[in-house]
């Protein structure tokens, strides 16, 4: 009853303001709880972040390490190493990564490429992978 009385006494502008704010707050809640954050690639060398890039735009990256340049690409939301000056090319063989927490590493060239934000392996039913 009290709410009805309040509603009646509100001006149209008050009502619009109330509905707008409530709607916006609810939308924010949904976004925070349901939707993943934007995925991004983070590249580290010797414990320092040397590069960051969102995964939603394709690009090629030349990442400098002690052995030379490692060439990595972002394409269709995935990351892979295309070329590397290291001996075994294990980093190339690691394939593509796309989920939060996944990583590629070129140990000889001191490079670590990992994905932050977005869809994680936990959503695929596992927390860690043994390989």
């Amino acid at each position: 009853m009290a709410l009805k009385a309040l509603w009646r006494r509100m001006t149209p502008l008050d009502r619009m303001l109330l509905c707008g704010l409530l709607g916006f707050a609810l939308l924010l809640c949904v976004l925070v709880f349901r939707l993943p954050g934007g995925s991004r690639l983070v590249v580290e060398r010797d414990d320092r972040i040397i590069y960051r890039a969102p995964l939603d735009r394709d690009r090629r990256m030349r990442l400098a390490g002690p052995l030379g340049e490692t060439l990595a690409v972002i394409e269709n939301g995935t990351v892979r190493v295309l070329a590397s000056p290291c001996r075994h090319k294990v980093c190339i063989g690691m394939g593509r990564i796309s989920r939060s927490g996944e990583w590629l590493a070129c140990v000889p060239n001191h490079l670590l490429l990992r994905i932050e934000g977005g869809r994680s392996s936990a959503e695929d039913g596992y927390d860690l992978i043994s390989r």
Binding site: A122, Y126, L128, I129, R131
Partner: peptide, 9 residues
Amino acid sequence: GRPWRIGVQ
């Protein structure tokens, strides 16, 4: 509160 879920490659 739940076990770790370990994926096997």
